[in-house]
């Protein structure tokens, strides 16, 4: 039972990080209808900048973190302005999605080459300290991740619902033509979405490489790829969905890993496939994801 509680707590805290990454995917999808497959690569890129600034340039953690978040946000804007722009006009959303795959291959290759065999620390000041809740010891970094995720998700939700920008963004996603006739500046909406999404990815990345994980190594890209099933399970156009999907993927992964001896007949690598099996099952029942808006052109 103690093991079960500890797994649940762990799963939720990992899931909160996935939720943050998935939220970035959802933000971009909401405003552009593009699935950004390069999102995990942006996460690794930004986290690599934080780690390099911290280890190589010996900057204080918070300065390094702000630098990483800022540079990634700028890269996000650059991607939007330079690479994705030609696709908006044609509304070629699938082509744009495939383009981000090409982009992710480029970024992944360069970051993987840079990281090499190293395991880099992003310098999270919470270090490896733990706290005991419900007789399970939980790393403080994970709690901080959970708290950050909750605050950021709530803030983003309120912003989207209440602010002018939120309305503009939802309008842009819903009907870009009408929105732009009503005075919504589409290019600004997509630019800000890319910036926010890329910044969120780095925040999530910093927590993803903090204790109890060893640090930033070449496997982080594959781990953060789980945000894609998380976003899809929740529904690509739903912020609530991102949270639910992130938690679902986190819990699935931690539980299948924790009980892998009981699940030995499924093989040792089952925990890596489990989120994708969950995704397939969800898509079978609800093709738009749990909270996604259903497409309404059926025959």
């Amino acid at each position: 039972m103690i093991e079960f509680t500890s797994l649940i707590v762990n799963g939720i805290s990992v899931g909160a990080i996935y939720a943050l990454v998935a939220l970035g995917v959802v933000i971009i999808f909401k405003s552009t209808e593009i699935v950004n497959f390069a999102h995990p690569s942006l996460l690794v890129f930004g986290t690599l900048i934080v780690a390099t600034a911290y280890n190589g340039l010996h900057l204080p953690f918070y300065v390094a973190a702000i630098a990483g978040v800022g540079i990634s946000a700028l890269l996000g804007v650059a991607i939007d302005r330079v690479l994705v722009r030609p696709f908006y006009k044609k509304r070629a959303i699938i082509a744009a999605g495939i383009m981000t795959i090409g982009l992710s291959i480029v970024i992944d290759t360069l970051t993987t080459n840079q990281i090499g065999a190293q395991i880099l620390s992003a310098g999270n000041p919470l270090g490896s300290s733990t706290i005991s809740i419900l007789s399970t010891s939980i790393p403080l970094a994970r709690l901080a991740a959970l708290a950050t995720a909750i605050v950021l998700l709530m803030a983003f939700y309120l912003w989207l619902q209440r602010s002018d920008f939120g309305v503009a963004m939802r309008a842009a996603a819903d009907d870009p033509e009408t929105a732009s006739l009503m005075g919504v500046r589409l290019s600004r909406v997509t630019m800000i979405s890319w910036a926010i999404a890329s910044a969120l990815a780095v925040v999530a990345g910093i927590f993803l490489v903090s204790y109890p994980s060893a640090g930033l190594d070449v496997s982080v890209g594959a781990v953060s790829l789980q945000a894609i099933p998380a976003a899809i399970i929740g529904g690509l156009d739903s912020t609530t969905g991102a949270v639910v999907g992130g938690l679902a993927v986190g819990l699935t992964q931690v539980l299948t890993l924790g009980y892998q001896h009981q699940l030995a007949f499924l093989g040792l690598s089952f925990s890596q496939a489990a989120p994708y099996i969950l995704m397939l099952l969800v898509l079978l029942i609800r093709p738009a994801g749990l909270f996604g808006t259903k497409e309404v052109s059926r025959v």
Partner: peptide, 25 residues
Amino acid sequence: SRMKGLTLGLATLSLVFIGVWLLNT
């Protein structure tokens, strides 16, 4: 045949990971 375009792409993404798991198992 129930899905199309992007949704199908995303659903088939799971086949890759399920496949690698099966090959290992």
